[in-house]
């Protein structure tokens, strides 16, 4: 059963633009991205939107729908009231290229700043032996589809653009945690997580977890454990003393 929905879509180039109103047909079973595509096909052929898989696995169609970061392809129209006006805007934390398409190169820059996996020098590829329980924590973080909605919603950079140089964002702090928990990673990442990647900026308000389309418990399983590891390294005198006396390794 189709109906006519009211859409307000942000249109513009760079940061300058405005919300434009559309009335567009919606059919049963459709998602917001389907409606955006219908707008392209019928009323706004130059409307820019990034998309790829339409299955919630490529992370391309991140946008803000009624103010909330969502994947366009995973947001069912049936979740809205038929009389509701649906507002679609680009992600607010990143610069806009055109319409709903953002320049997310901030994230690639941050990814490059993280030292890669550093295995022991005497272990050759093919010789890694790990038990499942040793790697399953890190495996949760590998579900990330890099939609960057966690970085988009994080108020540390969303509301404070000036923090961008100092803060890697939840996605890449999670990457640091993933590597730090890896049984074969030899690099001590705790100091740099705090000093170089801005873990201390996180005030664990869990918006990253709330918006994650893969339901990764970013805060509880990555950021807070990483904060606790940083406490071991920087702020807990007893752990520091113990590590000096007993030469403990984990």
């Amino acid at each position: 059963m189709g109906y006519k929905a009211k859409f307000r879509v942000w249109r513009g180039e760079g940061g300058e633009g405005k919300l434009e109103d559309f009335t567009v047909e919606v059919n049963e079973g459709e998602v917001v991205l389907d409606v955006i595509h219908r707008l392209q096909a019928t009323q706004a052929p130059d409307l820019a939107v990034r998309w790829n898989c339409k299955a919630g696995k490529c992370g391309s169609c991140s946008m803000e729908i009624n103010g909330r970061p969502r994947l366009g392809c995973m947001t069912r129209m049936s979740t809205f009231d038929e009389s509701e006006t649906i507002t679609v805007t680009p992600m607010r934390t990143f610069p806009v290229i055109k319409d709903l398409v953002c320049d997310v190169s901030f994230n690639y820059q941050k990814a490059r700043e993280i030292p890669s996996f550093t295995p022991p020098k005497d272990v050759k590829p093919g010789e890694y032996r790990m038990q499942q329980i040793d790697v399953e924590r890190s495996q949760e973080f590998r579900k990330c589809i890099e939609c960057f909605m966690c970085n988009n919603v994080c108020h540390v950079i969303r509301d404070h653009d000036e923090n961008k140089p100092a803060f890697a964002g939840p996605r890449f702090l999670m990457r640091i945690a993933e590597l730090d928990m890896h049984p074969y990673d030899e690099l001590d990442r705790r100091e740099s997580a705090q000093e170089d990647h801005g873990l201390g900026y996180c005030n664990i308000t869990k918006c990253c977890t709330e918006v994650c389309p893969e339901h990764i418990k970013i805060t509880d399983n990555a950021l807070i454990p990483m904060k606790e590891r940083v406490v071991d390294r920087k702020y807990d005198p007893l752990v520091w003393l113990g590590s000096k006396i007993f030469k403990r390794s984990n």
Binding site: W10, G14, G15, G17, G67, T93, I97
Partner: peptide, 21 residues
């Protein structure tokens, strides 16, 4: 505009605190 133009460095200008409904 080109990728280097300053306008491309800007976020969407939305002068509201939130669009959440």
């Amino acid at each position: 505009t080109t990728a280097e133009s300053p306008i491309r460095k800007q976020r969407a200008q939305l002068n509201v605190r939130t669009l959440r409904t």
